[in-house]
Design a protein around this nucleic acid. Structure first.
Lengths: 162, 162
DNA sequence: GTCTATACTCTGATAGAC
DNA sequence: GTCTATCAGAGTATAGAC
């Protein structure tokens, strides 16, 4: 709390005018992140073919996460420091996001364009693969953000047999 | 440290007969984990075709990580608590492991059986995808460990165009 | 709304007896 | 090798002045 206070230019005690305690502050950070993720996806998602929707999801996920490395880091690494109730709330939001991808994969399989044997596992596997980009991508590296998205999309597409 | 001491049945001070400080204890845990990973892989790897080697790697990675959920959790979540020198040492070991997969993918591409456009990115993407299994797999769930490995292998194989 | 001051607790680590 | 006792520092949070 002292470190946060120093970064925003006040003394530690002054922070408690804005948050009742540290746990609430962490929860608000994570909840805001997940709300923004879901809201941004609702604004981005389209009604095309399953293949198109999967590509939109893939590129959206990479772009959104690369735009917010700090929030993503917190959202994954601080889960264990949430109270049980707060953890459940964040997990529910995460599940809603996973369901968006699962629905695309499910529709694609039904349409005969995707061929994953297990849609639920494919959902989790693809999200893990895509989110991993935040652990290694650096803006000054050899690949542009668009280049990275192209490469991930190639793998996603193939992984579901499209 | 008091919590660890309580779990092993001694007082906190007694732990310092076994480790000079907490940082060393964490580093030793993570280093041991990485050493075991590399050693186990050396014992497991074979000389077959790239496709066979990739399958062996996939199944090995899943099995090894599902066998050690606690060590895996620490190895990923506590990286930020390592001193810079210790972090560099662990990262070097991690890189050696990644290089094992990268070599397989590289050989497969050269042989014309894999078709990933970017071998380095494919390496990181696949490891992230596979390691993700530890965040959701539960032994009492609907899938057996072998079933999970089969499903991941199907996705890995397709993702590299094999 | 921010400050200073401080209460209270926890933490890693050490000292010295046994 | 373990214990008890304790230190020094950091942590979250609160009180009261301005």
């Amino acid at each position: 709390m002292r470190q946060i206070a120093a970064d925003v230019g006040v003394q530690a005690g002054a922070l408690y005018n804005y948050t009742p305690d540290k746990q609430s502050l962490l929860f608000d950070l994570m909840k805001t992140h997940m709300d923004e993720l879901l809201e941004a996806w609702q604004a981005e998602k389209s009604d095309g073919t399953p293949l198109d929707r999967l590509e939109v999801f893939t590129r959206f996920h990479i772009r959104f996460h690369l735009d917010r490395p700090d929030a993503v880091f917190i959202a994954y690494m601080e889960l264990r420091n949430l109270s049980p109730e707060n953890f459940a709330a964040i997990e529910a939001l995460r599940k809603r996001y996973e369901d968006e991808l699962e629905q695309i994969l499910s529709d694609g399989k039904q349409a005969g364009v995707f061929h994953q044997p297990d849609t639920k596992l494919a959902t989790l596997a693809l999200i893990a693969m895509l989110t991993g980009v935040t652990t290694w991508y650096r803006g000054d590296g050899r690949l542009t953000r668009e280049g990275v998205a192209d490469l991930y999309w190639d793998m996603v597409r193939k992984a579901v047999g499209a």
